[in-house]
Design a protein around this nucleic acid. Structure first.
Lengths: 196, 196
DNA sequence: TCCGTCTCGTAACAAGCGTTACGATAACAT
DNA sequence: ATGTTATCGTAACGCTTGTTACGAGACGGA
């Protein structure tokens, strides 16, 4: 890690190292030393950038959320129609390639870590509620005639399905190939009356 | 822990202690000492019952699977119809009370631990595939006229949805109360054409 | 060029970890 | 009642952990 990089870039690089270790070695081996090794520096730099391990994890969690939010907003703005936006946004939540599988493992690692960290669970709730509101808004735009309760219920069904499928696929990629996940999503959208 | 209890009972008690620690303190604090304390014994007994920590976790994971399997089979056999069986079996997978929320946290803890343990991930895959086959069979019985691919796709959508909803509700019970989860499940079943 | 400051690697610390060795005590056969 | 065996708690081991202290070296102003 170069000596002249600015703090924000270093913090981001360390956060990426956190994701790497969490995704490849798991929460139990997510140590400060392992993160430093993955980032190509020493524990000294890590502890100069963050007051403690907790802060490092929280920053990495925050940046992961920002990353997925940016991706989702880009997909949403590029979509040609509300229903296409809904499908596209849900689709990116699946685990259909190496990167998204990795993200899903990391996401679950943070969720498991949140059991022992009040601020992590608070971050999870805030992010998850924002995600839910976004999908509710997309469902509402895709089916303007629906009553609010149906919008909310269907949105919940869709985000839960995407999250569960990502977890399954991350843990057993052979059993849940991309096509099976996409068929699952399309079948659900069609059945709800939200097909394109 | 009494001195005359047989080995199987002790192993089960220690497994329950593993679930307790995993659900209340998280994977990072799931130490042999914490498990012993939760079981009301010392690390000596734990290490006399299991060759190492890994074996303890694997046994606890196995017993958790057996527990949910027994519950699911009882629900299935008691159901008055295939569609009622399907709904009942999926409903038990949600996190609608303190016990099932706890189970969901434990389940995710084991999944996070599986990243660093090949046998745990193998156990997860075997159990998950069996679970998927069971729900496929139930969907097939609930809609005998469906082609196999639709049965498989809808079954995947349903188990993914239940799993995701359980994860959400375990991490944020206030945002995902039991009624919201049940409405979500019923709306999905109805939309798929599997309503009772 | 020299000095102060800031960066970050090195090395150490106490605490906690999984695991092992050993001894005390209970249970049982004789 | 006594000797044997199995059970399990105690205490220690080596190791890894998060964290701290300190020093070497790069950078910038005078």
């Amino acid at each position: 890690m170069s000596r002249t990089a600015d703090r924000a870039a270093q913090e981001a690089a360390l956060s990426r190292a956190v994701w790497d270790v969490l995704g490849e070695q798991g929460l139990e081996r997510l140590t400060v030393r392992a993160v430093a090794a993955a980032a190509g520096c020493t524990t000294g730099l890590v502890m100069h950038r963050f007051p403690n391990r907790q802060a490092l994890l929280r920053h990495a969690r925050h940046l992961l959320h920002e990353k997925t939010r940016a991706r989702v907003e880009a997909l949403e703005s590029e979509a040609p129609s509300p229903r296409a936006a809904l499908r596209s946004v849900l689709r990116q939540g699946l685990a259909t390639d190496a990167e998204t599988r990795h993200e899903s493992v990391v996401w679950m690692g943070f969720l498991a870590a949140a059991v022992a960290d009040d601020e992590l669970v608070e971050m999870h709730r805030a992010n998850n509620r924002a995600w839910r509101r976004r999908v509710e808004r997309l469902v509402g735009a895709a089916a303007p005639e629906w009553p609010a309760e149906r919008v909310s219920t269907v949105a919940l069904g869709l985000i839960a399905m995407a999250e569960g499928a990502a977890a399954f696929a991350a843990a057993d990629p052979e059993a849940y190939p991309p096509r099976a996940q996409e068929r699952m999503l399309d079948e659900a959208l069609t059945s709800y009356g939200l097909g394109v």
